[in-house]
Write a protein that binds this DNA or RNA. Structure first.
Lengths: 110, 110
DNA sequence: CGGATCGATGGATGATTGTCAAACCTTGTC
DNA sequence: GACAAGGTTTGACAATCATCCATCGATCCG
């Protein structure tokens, strides 16, 4: 099976603010963040994310940046990856930041 | 005289979230932000900012990035520039974001 | 087994970026 | 006017980055 493994990610205490902001300072990754705001797990398919124009390897790259920054976590299940927000870890380390970011993204994206 | 002019900066409504995050996704500029958190005006001298190791033109570059992102404003007075946070504009556009960022920076920088 | 699917990986490429150095410009000072 | 002071601008250079393409690995399905 090899289910329920996680791709490499920083420990909660190692999440660095500048690294997180750098990760989110890109329109594609900000788009991914807003997709993940529902708290659910998401596949990596660009077509499910409003990123049809991007190559799948490019999306894979962006998801790696988010994961290595500590923004997301990726669960491996079979040949699928399920990506979700590390909301609890982020809220614990940077209280209010994630909510402010998501609110800002929602307010300006329409 | 030519006092009290401002270097070019985006209008409040033009401040873009991703651009702001991109600007702050750099350790030097995050350091500048925390310096500006007191709300006061600051000179551009690297020695007044804990950036003695950086060339003055490098600091000038970083301050330009912050200003063009809408994070700071620069008042020209004689041969001096006075840089300060655009706190009101940022709070109006992204409520809670600046406070969360500064709190996060304070919490992790010591 | 054979083929298809999901996604990661490695290489290549063009664009962006952080840094320094040197020159420049404007303003204040002698 | 000559010179110093505070910053900006330009050029150069190395490093990083976003993107695509091709390939690969593992898993699931007939």
């Amino acid at each position: 099976m090899t289910d329920d493994e996680r791709l490499p990610q920083p420990a909660p205490a190692e999440i660095d603010l500048v690294t997180v902001l750098h990760a989110l300072g890109d329109p594609v990754r900000m788009r991914l963040l807003t997709s993940y705001a529902d708290g659910a797990e998401h596949s990596c398919d660009p077509r499910h994310l409003g990123l049809e124009h991007l190559h799948k390897s490019t999306v894979s790259h962006h998801m790696r940046v988010l994961r290595e920054a500590g923004v997301t976590t990726t669960r491996v299940a079979g040949r699928n990856r399920f990506v979700s927000l590390r909301r609890a870890d982020l809220d614990a380390r940077f209280p209010g930041l994630l909510d402010a970011l998501l609110a800002a993204a929602r307010a300006t994206a329409r």
